[in-house]
Design a protein around this nucleic acid. Structure first.
Lengths: 261, 261
DNA sequence: AACCCAAATTAGACAAGCCTAATTTAGTGG
DNA sequence: CCACTAAATTAGGCTTGTCTAATTTGGGTT
């Protein structure tokens, strides 16, 4: 309601300046050119010109050779950006389990571009996950640790742990290697050591992506698949790690539409 | 292994050009200046200079007055960016339930900035959520619809639905109004109509944030709280919608560290 | 062969952001 | 009161990424 209306109007860089100023004022009750320059690792000349641009937008007040003050509008905008920053960081850390330092860095970028709608959905999802009583986070931690530590163990994972905990029906899911040439499926889960998993992900084998089996070489080893328009050659152990969803897509077009209904 | 090494080296804009070129070649087997310009809604002169910069980086080949081709490196980078784009979009749509069009737009921004680590965590989380057998998505849809449609109904929600489904212990959770002046708590859930919910979120009342009750006015109505360093005045119905987590933080510093252990 | 047109290129301008180097200003100490 | 210093400002330069306007090029028409 009484919210900021300059969202998306000023640049990423200027938003960062606002944020810096807000935090400096919180910390030491005032913000000088020098402080801002040090904080953002830029020259004072750059800060000077940035302050002029911010003043022109009515977001800061800056008497010549004086300290920098935020206007009401500027403070609101700064707070809004900061709010997103902190929330996104918390989301990445608490839900996705991204390491703190990386989450902080990524939040710095996301804060500028995320649409209000996505922000709102993310808030609702966070709230749901942390309060739904299903202890999803603990389950996810188990899941994650399992795959992160899988490296030196037996490869196509058959642990009780895996079978019992993470959906028994995945124990009997179709694998990529179960397809006949020409058949397609949707990638659901990759059940392999961290190394192979990483390799497959890097090659574009991601959940929710449609794969088509093209050819299997005589001895069954190089397996050729088609994936989002380009061809890929996999070894058998890589291909058999790819578990597919039950539902086959009706047509390639409705891919993202029919998500998970 | 044989992956791109230009990540983070070229600008957001150039990455977008690469992506456009890749998609054009997929669609019509070649990419001319004009096509790229039309697709990205820029002038041909801009495309021309962009192609020169991309050629200098060894990402495209572009004989004068000829069509634009991707080098191997350029194609890999384009594919990588596109992969992220599509995956993030799917994540936003399928997990967070962001509307398709907005997810598409946000994915356009995120693709350029997301660190590999966050990408990887997101993939793992997506995989977990869609295959863990807990049917989290359906639960989340219920949760979401419940709050989205709450508008005209009785306000501090007491539905059976709510009590039973979304963690019975939240029926007896402390509210912000249960705190004594000076006491603090961590925001867990906001149980209010969409309008009030939105208002609180806009003011910075987000899950995982620490709030301190400062003062309650004589008649109990304007309630003053402190929140991430600034003060806020809430009406009683707003404040009582804020449910708190059980665990009180030991110290304000370890806030994000002690996330949810 | 001369002409025309669409695509591509070049030239030149502009804003945002950054820089370094030189200058101005204000406060502090001798 | 003068000199020194730290902070702030100005001047001028650079890159990226956009634009418009003019020009070149090459393939098809008449």
């Amino acid at each position: 309601m009484a919210e900021v209306n300059k969202v998306g109007v000023i640049s990423e860089s200027l938003e960062d300046y606002l944020e810096t100023i807000y935090l400096l004022i919180q910390k030491q009750r005032f913000a000088r050119m020098k402080d801002i320059a040090d904080d953002r690792n830029v020259s004072m000349a750059s800060v000077n010109s940035a302050m002029k641009r911010l003043a022109k937008e009515g977001l800061v007040e800056h008497a010549s050779r004086g300290i920098v003050l935020l206007t009401n509008e500027g403070e609101n905008l700064a707070r809004m950006v900061l709010r997103r920053h902190e929330f996104v960081r918390d989301f990445l850390v608490s839900v996705l389990r991204v390491p703190e330092a990386i989450a902080e860095k990524d939040a710095c970028s996301f804060e500028h571009f995320m649409s209000p709608e996505t922000f709102h959905r993310m808030v609702t999802f966070f709230e749901f996950i942390t309060t739904c009583g299903m202890d999803i986070q603990t389950h996810f931690d188990d899941y994650r640790k399992h795959y992160d530590n899988l490296e030196a163990r037996d490869n196509p994972c058959n642990h009780m742990h895996c079978r019992n905990r993470f959906g028994a029906h995945w124990a009997h899911a179709r694998r990529l290697t179960d397809l006949k040439p020409g058949e397609s499926g949707i990638v659901g889960r990759i059940r392999a050591s961290h190394r192979i998993r990483q390799r497959l992900i890097d090659m574009g084998v991601l959940p929710h992506v449609e794969v088509t089996l093209l050819r299997v070489a005589p001895l069954g080893d190089p397996i050729e698949i088609k994936l989002r328009g380009y061809n890929l050659s996999l070894r058998k152990d890589e291909a058999s790690a790819i578990l597919l969803h039950d539902d086959t897509p009706e047509s390639p077009e409705t891919d993202t539409e029919s998500a998970h209904e």
